[in-house]
Design a protein around this nucleic acid. Structure first.
Length: 519
RNA sequence: CGCGGGGUGGAGCAGCCCGGUAGCUCGCAAGGCUCAUAACCUUGAGGCCGCAGGUUCAAAUCCUGCCCCCGCAACCA
């Protein structure tokens, strides 16, 4: 059995979660669910990146300690993802000193021992208003554009990771053993490698960054984001076996196999692609740990066609979207899966999500189910699904295409395939005119549509699990009750036309997607 | 000459690599059906495929030049 370890980026909890966070989690969740459904053994991890100057500053502003701030904010992420049905096995927090820290410290020690860390004096332009170093692009006429002051030249000690020496090795790795999806991102990364890499700063003096993991053996330095945050992918598995007693409840025994002998997929946004493509594997190499297998890179979400920004006031809060649909996460999950091709940027629009809800979910899918079930219910009799070579072949082909599409992470394409099938069903229903038929002929005709819907329901399971299960429950399919369990696998017989011999009767029809209240 | 993405009926997109009746979803109009969530089905209106040249029997598709838009990335290392 294939073993899959799938992770998302860990979120920075200095403010409430937004739609960008949701896009990524839904994408990863669809993948994780599909892996499970096709029979793979799956471990899925999400979490939060809680250290850094930004958290420190935000906490100061709100008169809290950094610890208090993250303890207040992190549950917003956890609750949201629970409401969205994100099926993660572990939510890791980088402030977790029992589970996360020991692995990070061990990794640092290994890097130092390998001779790839070096302490240097860094000279930069520091703006006391921003409380950070500025880069050239932050400057306007040599001044901080925000505070209109000339930044001071400040020298500080930093540990550096010698990434510049890894260019050749990384080129080889990316060509062969580390796949980047979509491929145009790979081209971008290769182009970046052509220009050569700089060494990266791995630590800050404690005086400027105190909220973080101390550098082992150099207590006046605090680790900077890379060694701390990226490491979550392996600390959540405790691959070195160092986790402190208190964290053992979060781990399953022998978790390290999820790294050592699994297909490792990191789902991330395009902003952090280069760090995952370059720094992360280079770190692992020098720590003597195998490198991950693939990077799945998604784009960003705009809001109503414009960049999401606080100043434009168009930031969409995921909780508002959930509330808009009465707490049902599936319209949002469907929207993100159906409207945003993986890898591309997408747009969130209230008008559009309402359209998709009404037209696709309500009128096409929900109504199709209802028209079949209501008629069958009136007949109040057992289903007759005749063996039918034409439908059997068609269904087989559909499953093949669906699996192929999803296996290449084209979740948008796969969902569209399912919806195209639903579309065809509506047409076929009109053509068959079952309301004009009588007796066994009528039951047979309707049973065919019920059987088609059973397949549709299975295919929808990765995308809109709750709805998919409800469809199967209404259809009265025997396995419906188990569909949301992580151990549920779509078996060969489930994929076969008419193979559910113990499925006799349909259940009670009810409206899946009620019309929206007029605002 | 920074880099990247893009400009196709009212909206959102596919087609472009491998030239040959311009397609999909939503919206709109008319008709049909009546099993169903006023849903569903059929048909139709609507486009000089950003602009200007070039290659070709033939260009949304290939070549050249130009114009315009959007990002440089999630609240801010």
């Amino acid at each position: 059995m294939a073993r899959q370890y799938i992770t998302t980026a860990i979120d920075y909890p200095n403010a409430a979660p937004h739609m960008g966070h949701v896009l990524e989690k839904v994408l990863a969740d669809v993948c994780a669910r599909w892996f499970r459904l096709r029979g793979d053994d799956v471990r899925f991890q999400i979490g939060t990146d809680e250290h850094g100057i930004k958290i420190q500053q935000t906490a100061d502003r709100e008169k809290l300690s950094p610890r208090e701030l993250v303890d207040r904010n992190v549950p917003m992420f956890q609750n949201l993802y629970q409401k969205l049905g994100i099926s993660a096995d572990l939510f890791i927090r980088t402030s977790d000193e029992n589970l996360h820290w020991p692995t990070v410290i061990e990794l640092w020690k290994r890097l130092e021992k390998a001779g790839v860390l070096e302490k240097r004096t860094y000279t930069g332009l520091y703006c006391s208003g921003c409380e950070r170093f500025l880069t050239k692009k932050d400057l306007v006429d040599g001044m901080c554009d925000i505070h209109k002051v000339k930044p001071q030249e400040v020298k500080e000690e930093n540990w550096f990771f010698k990434l510049s020496e890894e260019t050749a090795w990384l080129k080889k790795l990316l060509k062969k053993d580390y796949k980047i999806i979509p491929s145009f991102r790979e081209n971008e990364t290769m182009a970046l490698l052509e220009t050569g890499l700089d060494d990266v700063s791995f630590s800050r003096p404690k005086s400027s960054l105190s909220w973080g993991i101390p550098v082992p053996g150099d207590e006046n330095q605090t680790m900077y984001v890379w060694c701390d945050a990226l490491t979550n992918y392996i600390s959540g598995l405790d691959i070195f076996g160092l986790a402190k007693e208190a964290s053992h409840a979060k781990l399953t025994a022998g978790s390290e196999v999820w790294w050592s002998s699994a297909t490792v997929t990191h789902v991330i946004g395009k902003d952090i692609a280069r760090f995952h493509a370059l720094i992360w594997p280079a770190m692992l190499k020098h720590a003597g740990v195998r490198t991950p297998d693939q990077l799945l890179i998604h784009g960003f979400l705009t809001s109503e066609g414009q960049k999401m920004s606080k100043s434009l006031g168009n930031v969409v809060k995921p909780d508002e979207v959930l509330a808009h649909f009465g707490g049902n996460p599936d319209p949002l999950r469907f929207y993100l899966s159906h409207e945003v091709p993986v890898g591309n940027d997408g747009d969130f629009s209230w008008k559009r999500i309402d359209e998709v809800y009404v037209s696709k979910l309500g009128n096409q899918l929900g109504n199709m189910l209802n028209r079949v079930l209501v008629m069958l219910k009136k007949e109040d009799t057992e289903l007759i699904i005749p063996s039918d070579t034409e439908n059997a072949a068609k269904t087989k082909k559909q499953w093949q295409e669906f699996a192929e599409t999803l296996n290449t992470f084209d979740i948008h394409g796969a969902l569209q395939q399912v919806m195209t099938a639903v579309d065809a069903m509506n047409r076929a229903f009109n053509a068959a005119e079952p309301w004009k038929l009588k007796g066994a002929e009528k039951i047979e005709a309707l049973s065919r549509f019920a059987e088609s819907l059973r397949h549709v329901s299975l295919m929808l399971l990765p995308f809109i699990p709750g709805t998919a299960q409800k469809i199967s429950v209404q259809l009265g399919v025997p396995y419906a009750g188990a569909m949301l369990e992580k151990s549920f696998v779509i078996t060969e017989s489930m994929k076969q036309w008419g193979a559910m011999k113990d499925w006799k009767r349909v259940g009670e029809p009810s409206i899946l997607f009620p019309p929206l209240e007029k605002a």
